[in-house]
Design a protein around this nucleic acid. Sequence first.
DNA 1: TGAACGAATTGAAACGATTTAATTCGTGAG
DNA 2: CTCACGAATTAAATCGTTTCAATTCGTTCA
Lengths: 345, 345
Amino acid sequence: MLTLMAVAQVRDVAARARVSPATVSNAINHPEKVSERTRERVRKAIEELDFIPNDAARQLRAGRNRAVGMIVLDAGNPFFSNLAEGAEDHLAEQGRPLLLGNSSQIPERESAHLALFEEQRVAGLLIIAVGDVTPQLRRLKERDTAVVIVDRMAGEDEFSSVSLDDVEGGRLISQHLIDEGARHIAVVGGPRHLRQVSQRLEGAESTASASPGVQVECIDTGAMDIESGRMAAAGILARDSEQRPDALMATNDLIAIGALQELVRSGLDVPGDMLLSGYDDIAFAGSATIPITSIRQPAHEMGRKSAELLCSLIDDPQTPTEQTVFQPELVIRESTNRSSAVTAD
Amino acid sequence: MLTLMAVAQVRDVAARARVSPATVSNAINHPEKVSERTRERVRKAIEELDFIPNDAARQLRAGRNRAVGMIVLDAGNPFFSNLAEGAEDHLAEQGRPLLLGNSSQIPERESAHLALFEEQRVAGLLIIAVGDVTPQLRRLKERDTAVVIVDRMAGEDEFSSVSLDDVEGGRLISQHLIDEGARHIAVVGGPRHLRQVSQRLEGAESTASASPGVQVECIDTGAMDIESGRMAAAGILARDSEQRPDALMATNDLIAIGALQELVRSGLDVPGDMLLSGYDDIAFAGSATIPITSIRQPAHEMGRKSAELLCSLIDDPQTPTEQTVFQPELVIRESTNRSSAVTAD
DNA sequence: TGAACGAATTGAAACGATTTAATTCGTGAG
DNA sequence: CTCACGAATTAAATCGTTTCAATTCGTTCA
């Protein structure tokens, strides 16, 4: 059989079902408008021809894409993949595909993804921002693209947001370190201007200023991955012992895990010689060589909530903006627990 | 200023730059065809009007999307996120966006993603398959969509593929377990029909059959995540001790990590009472409570290679198919090392 | 000076679906 | 027996860009 035939189109289906293209379209998109008999004929024709509608044409006519774009800081970080999964759960229920972009904390990549999503006329955008993207977000909003800022509190009511109180998180964990005897806390993370870093640092500094004799320093790692943690720890180990901090407060769990590898390798005792904490409470924090104390963020739930906010904004652009703030929860494990063998799970 | 103006279109830009729409299009897509002066005028008009081309219209006319789709088994598994990252690295260089879909090992979700990518007329597809998608892949190919199968050797020359020799991987690791004294190996993973599971099991069985007195059993966990590993281990711990295996060969690191948590919690000594191995060698395997022996897969490199194959297939559909097979590498760590304190890093 | 050429520009026709308004048709009411 | 009405169907316009073929215009060459 000669099959030079190009890909089937609506008109081919229409011809085969002996109806007009309009009826085919209706059979697909508004079944109630088409009689039982023709609907069936169309269904059969579609199947026989392997017809698959061209989404570009559909979108062009409809003016808008159903899909939602999301830009995360680091797709390799389980915290963000859980966040995305939570969002996808809700979006899938709404029949909306999620387009996932990874900025890798690089502002240029972030912009590139934004531009792409803008060209695609996505229905909405979930963003964990690196750089200052307010102007671009404003533009999107003007064009009736729904926007929800994730993992950062939106300044005013301009945008909706879902976040976790990171200053409080920083306070919680630094207070715990101090309670366990820390006098010199090194906050490890970077780049420093990242809100995730600056706010957690701010929390630590505010706690320290209320605790006489406690000092806080900030070690700026360029990135927030395992390797950065390793290198930061190596740097600390190279110091004279009196200059060394007695507690490492990593701004995420990956950094903590990397630091732990290096500390253990050098024979240092954690938590004996050095307290260590992470942030995010990813699944791997609890199963590290020395289980790591962390701040639990309900990533999945936060992702789902963001998607919910976004969908209501898409369905009714008049929906008032809303700031959802989750509360951090301290999870204490062996890496900061000198006194006992009891560990949380 | 009244800004009831709709979003700027080519014609608006054209009007402002006092040229025709065709010239605007050329200025954007074929700059060499446009004189220096008009090009500049157009550039300025685009900027002033914040013009962003409508991708749907462009695609409709062009007939094809530049983007590439990828479907992974589990976006939360670092192995797959590394794979995706490797692919994205290469694709970004080619100016091709990557659309990432997550099947979560559910055939229905896989089909849904496939259908979506088909509607979007993606230029190419990278897939780590769950179910039998050969018919759908064939259809894509007929429609000139490039396809590369990842993490599985394509049967014949029908499709290009990038994979790792998993039977050999299974052999390597089971041989090592046997060398360390294992007599009853439980292969833990699932669902069983997943190629990743069946081939690694096959390798273990072939090794065992050459080693008198060694038996292999297979414990089918429904999924391949940390929780499944925990539950499988709990099941094993509930057995009479003479029925227990003396080695757990997990089919990925997440399962191994989950199992380890449960084993440690129950007070069992690893590797003393039970040997434990993983697969994939994700970053967290080496920094687990007891560092876990694993099979290293060069995920990033495999991802990049897949993208390279795909791109050459897109650029020239006549490119002959190619099967790239990577070799597994055994990484020995404490979880299988009874004899010494020496650990690989 | 005029013909011929090439570069730059443009008008109009696509691309493939959806939608609106118009048409057909069968049926029940008057 | 006709008219009116609603249900089902359809023709044609439309979405916003790209591209093809045609046109304009300034040069060069004979």
